[in-house]
């Protein structure tokens, strides 16, 4: 139980995917312009991460023990296909849900955070539940970072940020400051 808690907190705060592993930076910088989009993207990502954790576990347990060298290619193909399938399914079954979440799915597929999740979980030898918890932590952590950045960016739209800095440079610096603030979580619950 302690271990699961630590895995969760670690992925959520201490080793936040975006802020310490730099995973999922493209959407982090690209989509964080609006708060609502960010929140939705974050939730969709969390969902896909959960799906990925399951996929990765299934692949690791049943397929890749026979051929570890196919790990990468299997992950990416399976994740991409599964997500695409889910996307189609949602689109057919619930257009409302699709509009809310589904349109982000393709973006997420090639998001390195997803692949990173699968690879990290494998490298650390996480089991099924550990993987799920890890995915949950990573997804919520990603959402948290995204939403925080979006809030800051929306607010900074009202500031007279010098033209020179506006844009990616500013976003990176905000991300850097956020990352610095997240350093405060180092060691959280590790001694519990």
């Amino acid at each position: 139980m302690d271990n699961l808690l630590w895995i969760f907190i670690s992925a959520l705060l201490v080793n936040n995917f975006v802020l310490t592993y730099f995973l999922g930076l493209c959407p982090f910088l690209g989509v964080s312009g609006s708060l609502e989009t960010s929140a939705r993207l974050g939730l969709a990502t969390t969902f896909v991460m959960l799906v990925t954790a399951v996929c990765a576990w299934v692949l690791n347990t049943y397929v890749l023990i026979h051929a570890p060298y196919l790990r990468l290619i299997c992950f990416i193909v399976v994740i991409a296909s599964t997500v695409q399938f889910i996307e189609m399914l949602i689109k057919k079954l619930s257009p409302a849900l699709f509009r809310a979440m589904g349109i982000f799915l393709p973006l997420i597929t090639t998001n390195c955070a997803i692949l990173g999740l699968a690879i990290f979980a494998t490298n650390r030898g996480y089991g099924f539940w550990e993987g799920i918890v890890y995915a949950l932590g990573a997804g919520i952590g990603f959402t948290l970072a995204l939403v925080l950045l979006a809030g800051l960016r929306e607010e900074s739209e009202l500031s007279n940020i010098p033209k020179l800095i506006k844009g990616t440079a500013m976003n990176l610096i905000i991300a850097g400051v956020l990352s610095m603030a997240f350093m405060g979580f180092a060691g959280l619950f590790s001694s519990a």
Partner: peptide
Amino acid sequence: LIRVFGGLPEGVMYAILLMNAATPL
């Protein structure tokens, strides 16, 4: 949280910075 469960003895600075980040929200 940081003082008691975290790795650092002091967390005021981080706590305020983190809440600064959440202020727009």
